[in-house]
Design a protein around this nucleic acid. Structure first.
Lengths: 221, 221, 221, 221
DNA sequence: TATGAATGAGGGTTCATTCAT
DNA sequence: AATGAATGAACCCTCATTCAT
């Protein structure tokens, strides 16, 4: 057993700098892509822009993703599913009233795990849905539908408990989530030209206030 | 009065078919552009596509607009200002309660003067705001801000009258308009992949119901 | 009827410079392509090379042919079918012995209508057959097979007349045409490095001499 | 004698499997290259294709050949010289008539030492002659010229012996070898699209029959 | 006014080659 | 000796824009 082979074996356990890099590359590339897509949109983003921001050369991207479209799709998929998982966790917790859990939903979405750059993804999806029907379908069915279903279930639970008055839970779920999404879109679109941006928390607090009053069970007379 | 304007006026007086055509050209081109941008987005739309849909040749577009970007900007400006004017008219009418007038706001926006193709404009703005900061600023300040101001004023009137409880009228205006805009975006983005689309009126009725309850003045005990 | 419309009508009969150019472009482009493919082969030829040789810009080629491959295919098709037609004419003429007509076949092929650059086409086909199976099939079945059939028919007529001895006419046709093709290939491949090139006519005369003796009917003893 | 050569000699004396591998590498690489070039042509072959077929990584090829072009040149040189040597041996044997030896020439070329993949080399040369003038010169002068000289000498011997009639031996040599080469090219190019390929031996037998009759000495009257 | 042939800069993608490991 | 991640020059193709007719 040579010195070299010992080293090689060690590498399996403790990856070399090179291997660690290889592992980290996809995430680095997607982060760079997100930033660039956010600023310019999909079409106006050049592969070279992404590469430069990631600190690699253009060709390197193609070692990890076969096309610009594939980068975009990976970006969407990788980032949305974790967000959904967090919502799922909130829905399943049984602590607090349904109204409380709705508040936590909003808080979770509004912070998107402390990564505000993810706010840009809904904008990208909306903007590019026409050009990427497959991606639109994925987003519509795997992300939006599941997100709405979580809210809808929570609303139904609230109705059953008598917290909320009776109304169509699917429609109400859309109205509940709408302002959260719109806040994200707003930020994406007008951040650069907004003079005095409203901090999202203030807006969302008012949304919760109005919405929860609006669906509150009628007080018995 | 220049020689040219005399000629133009003469044309207005006795327009031949050809002359009427010439006058109508810009509007025809913008209509064709709107349809094409709706389907493909700004970047993926080729000048040739617009020209073909308008029934003219590529070069002709440049007789009326100096660039593709100028076509886009004209499209936005020409179509949004009339919509705003209609909202203004509603705000100024003094018939009915404030709640009623808010209902008519929503109805007006939801139909966009019976031209559902205009729904696509917010999506286009959203997608291209990063690439056209000047347009984003125009839209933000000339369209959105004015629209919000109208709603805000109506809400304040309602508070003064005692119809609504006290809350920040600017924020509430955003929350009021949000679902309308989002419905438009939703339609634009997912029409192609939506299995059973919710008709916007049903959704917007529920929105009005919840929102108006949510901001209603507290019943005196 | 205006002056202008008179001019326009005249244009239909006597095409303007612009139209004449448009008509001539495809042939000019194919000529430039042939020269460039001859020198460098298909893969090493850049569209820009072809464009420069034709005196146009890169983009212009795409107004007439949708891809580099399409240029190549058009080049082959346009140039080979006329050559085949000339052979057909010779085969159908009934003047002279069959041997005479074979001599005229060779003469016709060897000059390729006075356009020696066409010699390069068989080389291109052979070289690229692997990459363009569809083109190979076209050439094999529409050009080679038909050319061989013509020769084969002539040989059979000669056998029936007693000019030639009995042998497989299809195989003999290949052996007859072989040296003609090979001469073309030879020229294409080694023109640049050949010290003292053999003039094809001399070689082909000897070919005719040996071949015709080789297939001559046995003298009655 | 250097230290290194001592080591190398030692390796020759007692080659381990690993060492034998190292020695065999160049030949393995050339074999993989030949197969890939045959299928796709030079330009469309990627170094990675060759590497994969040889079971090594891309970088390894560069340990043995400095460039793709060098691989191609080595391939040609290594494979053609042995074939020439076999022809030389036939030419020098004095058994049989000259016609017999010509028959053995054809047989030797047609089988290319039982390695039919070598048939592809003339096609590759043909296709790339324009891009590799140095290689074309090598092939033209070191391979073709020497091959033709062998045949030419045999023909002259036959003329001197009275087997063959008088004719230009260099030209006749080309006509003699032509169908053999063309058969190789044919196979390479059309194997994939040929419906009922003629087996080369049948074709070449007829070639020998016609050619030898065509150059046979005139019978005394 | 209208046309559409022509342009040429620009960007996605490929792949021979390099070099740190 | 061998690897394979990384590079970046090269090239096909697109399309906004121009301009002669």
């Amino acid at each position: 057993m040579t010195v070299r082979s010992v080293i090689m074996n060690a590498m399996d356990a403790a990856p070399t700098k090179r291997r660690r890099r290889k592992q980290a590359r996809p995430a680095e590339l997607l982060a760079a892509a997100l930033d660039t897509f956010r600023e310019k949109g999909f079409a106006a983003t050049r592969m070279e822009d992404i590469a430069a921001r990631a600190g690699v050369s253009k060709g390197t991207i193609y070692l990890y993703y076969p096309s610009k479209q594939a980068v975009f799709e990976a970006l969407v998929r990788e980032n949305l599913l974790p967000s959904l998982a967090r919502l799922e966790a909130i829905r399943q917790s049984t602590e607090g009233s349904c109204a409380d859990r709705l508040r936590r939903f909003v808080a979770s979405l509004a912070t998107t795990a402390g990564e505000p750059r993810l706010f840009a993804i809904p904008k990208l999806i909306l903007a590019e849905a026409g050009n990427f029907p497959e991606l639109a379908r994925f987003y519509r069915h795997e992300v939006v539908a599941r997100g709405l279903a979580l809210v809808s279930a929570l609303l139904e639970e609230g109705m059953a408990r008598g917290e909320f008055r009776r109304l169509d839970p699917d429609l109400a779920a859309r109205l509940f989530i709408g302002p959260v999404i719109l806040t994200a879109l707003w930020q994406s679109a007008f951040a650069a030209v907004e003079d005095a941006p409203t901090p999202p928390p203030v807006l969302l607090d008012l949304h919760l206030d109005i919405f929860l009053r609006g669906i509150a069970a009628e007080p018995a007379r």
